[in-house]
Amino acid sequence: MKISIKREFDFIEYDVDMQDVTLLEMLNHIKSEVDSSLAYSSGCRSSVCGSCGVRVNEKEVLACSYKVQEGDKIEPLKNVPVIRDLVVSLDKAYETNARAKAWISEYNSQAKQTHEDEKINETQSDCILCASCYSACPVYAVNEEFLGPFALTRVWKVVSDKREAELKEKIDTIQTNGVWDCTLCNECTVVCPQGISSKADIEKLRAKSSQYGYMDPNFGSFGGGFDSGFGFDGTPSF
């Protein structure tokens, strides 16, 4: 099987005698048998550590859960600095979690979490920080200050949690370079290996922001914009 991998300057083709294997297994084979200088990240092999996010034919996947196909083109994630080959630096992307204050700020010890409450942010708390969503996000691509999909999902995780007593601070923090900057293009949802929709979480954060008196800063501009939350006829679009 032939695949090509983006190396230092260009794509290099590898002809590997393996069938029906995950991309990670093939990368391991290439590294230990063909070219030990190939750089990529991996960890758990079972889609929970978030180490092995790459792009295959321009789509984000986890190398450990993707079956390689003839002719696949493998590249590092986008919108983040490439360190070497398929390895990127996620330092900046990870910093968005701190900037977004994606944590419980004040614990409400009176809150009784029910089985139904558990379901509210169960999926959001499945996030593995693989950064596929940052790679796919067209807003993060042009604005590094944008808090970005996983950080905002993690904020919604906290905001939707009864145990958080200090909601206003959470909402205040995500107004600039936050919920209103998203174009609701849904690319993050499409690529998330954990089935999380940051776009939907951002919409919920917008609704919550309105309750705290915030308005879409784009609202009222020409035509209302596509991301104003309302369709052309004035009806809510979500």
Binding site: W103, I104, Y107, S109, K112, Q113, T114, H115, D117, E118, N121, E122, S125, K157, V158, D161, R163, E164
Partner: peptide
């Protein structure tokens, strides 16, 4: 762990499962 926000599964009577 509950106080810092771990999303534990819950029982029907609102306790940690």
């Amino acid at each position: 762990l509950d106080s810092i926000g771990v999303c534990f599964s819950r029982s029907e009577d609102a306790k940690i499962a």
